[in-house]
């Protein structure tokens, strides 16, 4: 299968290792990965902040980029950005009165999958240890990000994949379904409420005793990781893709609390 990678802007610029790991996992399964060069961002930050006018060119660019390449499906290591591509892009085009863009955005959205959705539903990954050689001998707790959980209804897909990683001990996160308080510009516009939500999330994470908090969205992980780092908690954050890409021969190092050091091995 030919798979187009939507890296998402935050992973592209700040957490490239999650996109590298996504490539590694997909290639290990024998698929061809392409990276449409024109891609930039899903525009969610603009939409969710009420800047619909400014979101239009961002959406149009995404649609253009993912029309420019020939591929079977597109994938992103983010539930939130995929939900934006699927749900917000047609809405932004409709609000702008651009029926043509709406139709094209809907078509791109239909071909776009969140990583765990693609792995489980399309590529039939049921046994990461066996099929991908996934090996990660650490205690891990898992935060299900809101948009993946509620907008994409990912259910048990991400946690299920983590449970199938050899050596990984998955520890239940209390109040897992509670938002971490990120919410994009919410985290600066309502910084106090956001920080109060984060304090409860990090306390729950620390109560598990896990050395790593895993998730499927680097936006939420940046927020949670930023809190864990400020608290000098010693708990690291890692993306699901990075854990799946880790093997016994070439293990992914558990990064420091701010996520600054990691050795990523591709292929």
């Amino acid at each position: 299968m030919k798979i187009a990678l939507f890296a998402t802007c935050i992973v592209d610029g700040m957490y490239p290792r999650a996109a590298q790991a996504t490539v590694a996992v997909l290639e290990r399964l024998g698929h061809e990965v392409v990276f449409p060069k024109g891609q930039a961002c899903c525009g969610q930050m603009h939409v969710n902040s009420g800047y619909f006018k400014e979101a239009v060119p961002v959406v149009a660019n995404h649609v253009r980029a993912f029309e420019s390449e020939d591929y079977d499906v597109a994938v992103a290591p983010s539930g939130s950005c995929v939900a934006s591509v699927k749900h917000q892009h047609p809405m932004v085009a409709r609000r702008a009165g651009d029926a043509g863009l709406e139709e094209r955005a809907t078509a791109v959205g239909k071909k776009t999958y969140e990583l765990s959705e693609l792995l489980v539903d399309v590529l039939g990954v049921t046994d990461p240890a066996g099929q991908l050689g996934s090996y990660f001998p650490h205690t891990v707790t898992y935060h299900p990000s809101c948009h993946g959980m509620r907008l994409l209804k990912l259910g048990d897909r991400q946690a299920g994949l983590l449970r199938g990683v050899e050596g990984l001990e998955l520890l239940d996160l209390p109040e897992a379904d509670q938002c971490c308080g990120f919410g994009g510009t919410f985290s600066v516009k309502n910084a106090d409420v956001s920080s109060a939500m984060l304090a409860d999330k990090t306390a729950n994470i620390r109560s598990t005793g896990a050395s790593v908090c895993a998730g499927g969205d680097y936006s939420c992980l940046m927020h949670i990781g930023g809190g864990l780092s400020r608290q000098e908690s010693g708990v690291a954050t890692l993306h699901l893709a990075e854990i799946l890409a880790s093997t016994e021969a070439e293990p992914v190092a558990v990064p420091g609390p701010a996520g600054q050091t990691v050795k990523v091995v591709v292929k």
Binding site: P16, A191, S195, G226
Partner: peptide
């Protein structure tokens, strides 16, 4: 507002 309770990691040396 972000750094009141959260750090940001240093950016990586190159983008994806």
């Amino acid at each position: 507002g972000w750094t009141q309770s959260r750090d940001i990691p240093a950016p990586p040396s190159q983008s994806f």
